[in-house]
Design a protein around this nucleic acid. Structure first.
Lengths: 193, 193, 193, 193
DNA sequence: TATGAATGAGGTTTCATTCAT
DNA sequence: GATGAATGAAACCTCATTCAT
């Protein structure tokens, strides 16, 4: 997930993510990050200018990674329906591979701690734009109901997020069948009847 | 929203909510709450045992209020489709009436800062149980597709949450027509074909 | 010296002065000030917004005190010569009464740590203006040689400062007779021949 | 000014002087010295054993340089009056050639950061001893008033320092005529009438 | 009951110094 | 000899909480 970083940065980012999910941003002190990542505070400040920067870098890296992964599904050759399924499957897959990353993005995408500029850049480099394009195409072809494609993408993303939350809280499983069903529910709600 | 509390408690809770949304939990100090609510720290500690308690009380109160409001819609006499619409309309309405309350719940429902016990109680006293019941009935009657009703409720809630997030971030409007359409999308995805 | 401050502020300012003279600004940590003044760091920050503010307040207070004291000498009814003597006697007297205050002003009047604005205010409220006036009068009456009165005042002040430095470093005494002689040296250098 | 040092040492000393005057000893970090002198911290520590040593070396070097320069004036063949003038002219000249050096000595000659031993050595190798000798001679010949020659030298030095301070703070010029006048003021105050 | 000054542990960050390369 | 990443003690400052008034 943090392949583009050096060893120290990677250790810091990974540790920070674990602690934030386990304990809250509040309780995520630099001392604790240093201790658990086995990097001295001095070194952390050699690679990151502040705690805020660590958190924002974390946000950027996770969104970029997930964006890349989901786009690989979305951009494969296929029908709209196939690409719809591949795309959302990969969205859900990211949350299974890196549940902490998923939780982190969910909790902090609305937080003032993440700079507006970082959110903007993350959004632009993520999978939203290609997904929006897919929905817009589907609407143009008369396949999906006529509405703001971006809004429909958001609604479907919300559905996936809350399904995963249910799973992470232990209230439901996340089987292949369940995932297929959830995607089907979204598809069925989207198509023109 | 905080009718059951006395004047001091109300001032503290309202102020805390405003500050948390504006500045993050991190930056929400007792001193700032005291200053903006015009209640001395001493008095705050007379009515709340700790900062944690304020935040948890806030959570409880908002969920209870919203739960009450949504249930009034859900419990009216009507068909399943009518009650479905009334329920979700009211869910969205709460986010328009108290956007800070909505944001707070979204940001902190996953946070370890809110006690598990409080989350549980909030869930039980909220609108989820009646909504789950409505969905279960719809499935029993063959109206909705066969699946875990709680999961479908969560998915629909996620759709609503992300529609509202879009609106609160200024990326879309929240018109009567738009709300109706969103509810329709959910309905259409839910029914047995 | 710090009569206009409350007990806590006074303790902090007095302690800070002692430590700075003994150990350097560098080595004057808040922890040490807290320990020696027996005021907790929290309380210090209740009364002063930063370490910088303590130092600048110290500067302001000492200059104000000395300014008051010297002006009482300068403004007494008397001939120019008498007032010249009284004024400089009191300048030297301040350094005997509060050698730490004297040293502090000497060491930090040129430091970027003292805000320019504070230096300006201190200068205006101090004894320099009345002394300059006395010199200007003496020149107008043909008593002193014609030159920039402010510059001559500065030169004389420099003489006094270095005499006191000699004394504080243990290289000379500071007797009544010695002080009289020093003042006489200045007077003799100033008058028109 | 730092001719006796190698290239690296020279760069470090010069840079340190600039930063200290601009920013205070407090804010003069080794990292900043390394960056601005383009010498790595590792190399700095190869040539200096500590930060303290840099500062003390700086002090030593400046005083030695100025001492040499002033003594060249003092030791020329001439009357007491001529040598008096040449000496003080050169004192003032050093402050014009190296204002940072002048300021540094003024600010730190009283500081505990400079080792007592360094101050002593600097004093002995500087221009004070020959100047004291000149004054003692003048007194012996009945030219100057009878008093401690060292004290009178200090007083005159103080006058020069404060004249230069006035100039460096932009409160007065430092013309040839002005310098001559200042020296004349000192001379006139010193002679037996 | 109400206040807000006082506390001090613990937060983020800096920085002199070391040492592997 | 030269580099600069790494260290961690210690700097400044904040803040939840207490308690005398």
């Amino acid at each position: 997930m943090f392949e583009q970083y050096n060893k120290v940065q990677k250790a810091v980012l990974e540790t920070t993510l674990q602690i934030i999910i386990r304990k809250e941003l509040q309780a995520t002190s630099m001392a604790l990050i240093a201790k658990e990542s086995k990097v001295s505070t001095g070194s952390i400040y050699h690679y990151f200018s502040s705690k805020e920067e660590i958190i924002n870098e974390l946000y950027t890296a996770i969104v970029a990674y997930n964006g890349q992964f989901v786009q690989e599904g979305l951009n494969r050759e296929g029908t709209i329906r196939e690409r719809f399924i591949w795309g959302w499957e990969r969205v859900i897959e990211t949350s299974r591979q890196y549940p902490e990353g998923f939780q982190f993005i969910e909790q902090y995408s609305f937080s003032p701690y993440i700079y507006e500029e970082v959110k903007q850049k993350a959004y632009n480099g993520g999978w939203c734009a290609p997904m929006n394009k897919l929905y817009a195409d589907a609407m143009e072809q008369g396949l999906f109901r006529e509405m703001d494609p971006k809004l429909l993408v958001q609604m479907h993303y919300g559905s996936m997020v809350y399904m995963v939350k249910s799973y992470l809280q232990g209230n439901s499983d996340l089987t292949e069948a369940g995932i297929r069903q959830a995607i089907e529910v979204c598809w069925q709600g989207a198509i023109r009847e």
